[in-house]
């Protein structure tokens, strides 16, 4: 079973994402900001990360840059999941090493299709 780290400061979003990902047979772990997520990655790299952009303490993009620099940090497939829907943000995310990008709001179908596209399903 693959592990997906869900990083979002909203408890509700984490819960929705958890339910969708568990139905897709992922084991899920959660983090409420980038710093907690980074600590989780330092302990064990997940196969996938579903990543919000705007969070307190450490943003999604800061987390992504730091995670990619860690040993083994190039391995996780990172899918941004954010309300930031302008081209500049999307390009910045891709340049920082994001594999896919979901613009909120999302539904289970979008997550499923995006995860399939990046080879997670």
């Amino acid at each position: 079973m693959k592990t997906c780290l869900i990083v979002d400061d909203s408890k509700v979003i984490r819960m929705v994402a958890r339910k969708i990902l568990q139905e897709l047979e992922f084991e899920t772990i959660e983090a409420a900001d980038g710093k907690i997520a980074l600590e989780a990655c330092q302990s064990k790299m997940p196969e996938a990360v579903l990543l919000d952009w705007n969070m307190p303490v450490m943003s999604g993009i800061e987390f992504l840059r730091e995670m990619r620099a860690l040993p083994g940090g190039d391995a996780p497939v990172v899918v941004f999941c954010t309300t930031e829907n302008d081209i500049e943000h999307i390009q910045e995310a891709i340049e920082a090493g994001a594999n896919e990008y979901i613009m909120k709001p999302f539904d289970s179908e979008i997550i499923q299709v995006k995860f399939a596209q990046v080879g997670l399903l």
Partner: peptide, 11 residues
């Protein structure tokens, strides 16, 4: 556009 279109192709 999120139903099936990879982000790179969207851009």
């Amino acid at each position: 556009v999120q139903r099936g279109l990879p982000i790179q192709l969207l851009l």
